[in-house]
Amino acid sequence: MDDVSHQVSARETGEQAIIAKLSGVTRDYPAARGAKPLHALGPIDLELKQGEFFSVVGPSGCGKSTLLDILTGLSPPTAGTATFEGKRIHGVPDGVGVVFQEDATFPWLDVEANLSFGLKQLQLSARERQDRVEQALRIMGLVGFRSAFPAQLSGGMRQRVCIARTLVTQPRLIVLDEPFGSLDQQTRLLMGDELLRIWRETGATVFFITHSIDEAVMLSDRVGVMSARPGTFIDMLETGWAQKRDSRNVADPHFGKLTGQIWGKLRGEALRQMQLQNDVAL
């Protein structure tokens, strides 16, 4: 690991508690008409440390989103166990917030109503609800847009609303599924900075799925590299970034070394995944 000015070991906190754990998790999909059953994922073993920023990169179709579904309780594993804060995951656990790749803002609600919508199921006083909304609006730079409807916002702003809607619930684990996938490169970098700031301010654990190696390396403490389908972890890298970091670390020589290292692992898998998809198409 190169020695660079802002590079110290991530979260120099010694042993961190485990917030979520996947043990021997697999996911099979039943056979469609005339096709074989699909073994989409696993076996996966993973321990997410409390407060870490963990990213997953892998070829398209390798099962990253399936992994997200299992970790968030949106769908059960075929085999193995998934736990959050020591409890087995059945349905979406309290304390888990999800930001999806697609624009999930509700177009019939303005920004403020979108944010408070996330609190509907929580037993909170009106004051507490309003405080949380105000805080999320402030953190995400949406104060001036509280009365705007999603159709009046750019794609980046709508994704901020989605993140803010997750933040109001004060999740201990924030799971993001390629949240910046539809944004241009510059906006992605800036949104990455925003995400890092939120991560530092909230102290939440972040599980970040992306197909961008650069994004994973720039943002994360640890990067899990997945194989072609059925997706398993073929490598796990510690980036070694300091907790206080931002997108300027892309200029760091260590950044290039890490991305090169990941691409070295991933290239063959990406080719294999393309071959798999071609076989299915034929």
């Binding site: 968030t72 949106l74 349905g91 979406v92 309290d94 888990v96 917030g97 999800v98 999806f100 697609e102 624009d103 999930a104 509700f106 919508f117 996330g118 509907k120 199921q121 619930t169």
Partner: peptide, 18 residues
């Protein structure tokens, strides 16, 4: 309907009627 709306409702732990 966009599936992500239903997934969001699921994440927010809304019941079927809500």
């Amino acid at each position: 309907i966009k599936p992500v709306y239903l997934r969001s409702a699921n994440v927010m732990q809304l019941d079927g009627f809500a």
